[in-house]
């Protein structure tokens, strides 16, 4: 269980990195933290001609608090983001979800952008991005483009990023005052990929839910208003629409049940405080 041979490139700049990607296209793989890629290399599920290591690129190692947005560079680890000052205020959903991304040892090395680009349909960060509706900056020798979260993940392990593109940073919109968020997931063991993960956002009367682990990518459902007595039916229909698959860990039916159950929990958890504080 050892990787097939590959060339290894450590570019000194984003330009150099995208140059290599332009040259090799789909035969190159970018490695940042490698916590998703390395298992696939070890199992020889992925056999790149060249591995482009961007983990030490200073340009990608920063997290920038921009106007209304937290821009997280492609080499920033999940652990670094989790420890970002005031994350609980600026991005409460990420603060809630990050502790469920793998284990602290993998968060030490695994990057935020890497998890997004890996596009596992069950993982937490793509789910958060889908709900928050951020953007990815993609660089290539052809230029720079920004792609909206909803168009980024296309399906199982598949994103809109072209083979010659490098995801340079992700921008998460900060939580507007008054919005509340909640995250829940069910997995058989702590740190596993979720069987079902759900994130909710409440903004006034509007409620959005993002569901991971059921369809081939995280899917978002938005209601302008969702009265309490409609929640159960709405979640039931959502569960049916998402469908779900059977695998050795759960049945489609159980996944739908978790959509109903966790959906209810996250919606409840986003209720505004009743003012007693």
């Amino acid at each position: 269980m050892k990787p097939a041979p590959f060339d290894y490139v450590q570019p000194d700049s984003v330009d150099e990195a995208v140059e290599v990607l332009a040259q090799y296209g789909d035969d190159a793989r970018v490695i940042a933290g490698g916590q998703s890629l390395m298992p696939m290399l070890n199992m020889r599920l992925v056999r790149p001609h060249v591995l482009v290591d961007i983990s030490r690129l200073p340009a990608l190692s920063s997290t920038v608090d921009e106007d209304g947005v937290l821009a997280v560079g492609a080499a920033v680890t999940q652990g670094t983001l989790a420890a970002w000052p005031n994350l609980g205020m600026t991005l409460p959903l990420l603060a809630q979800a990050l502790p469920y991304v793998g284990h602290f040892q993998t968060r030490n090395r695994g990057t935020v952008c890497g998890s997004l680009c890996h596009a596992d349909p069950s993982s937490e960060l793509p789910l958060c991005l889908a709900l928050l509706g951020g953007e990815m900056d993609l660089h290539s020798s052809r230029g720079v483009r920004t792609i909206a979260a909803e168009n980024f993940q296309r399906g199982v392990l598949t994103t809109a990023k072209a083979p010659d593109e490098l995801a340079v940073r992700v921008r998460f919109p900060k939580a507007p005052a008054g919005d509340s968020f909640a995250f829940r997931e069910f997995c058989h063991r702590h740190g596993d990929f979720a069987v079902v993960a759900i994130a909710a956002r409440r903004s006034g009367t509007a409620i959005s839910l993002a569901v991971g682990g059921v369809a081939d990518r995280p899917e978002v459902c938005h209601w302008n208003s969702l009265p309490d007595d409609s929640v159960e039916d709405a979640l039931n229909d959502l569960a049916w629409v998402l469908g779900g698959n059977d695998d050795i860990h759960a049945t489609a039916r159980h996944r739908r049940q978790l959509v109903r159950h966790l959906g209810c929990q996250v919606i409840d958890a986003t209720r505004p405080d009743d003012g007693t504080e």
Binding site: Q35, M38, N42, Q105, T106, N108, R109
Partner: peptide
Amino acid sequence: GKATRACLVL
């Protein structure tokens, strides 16, 4: 200083 899987690093 960071706890890391030595099987997931080159």
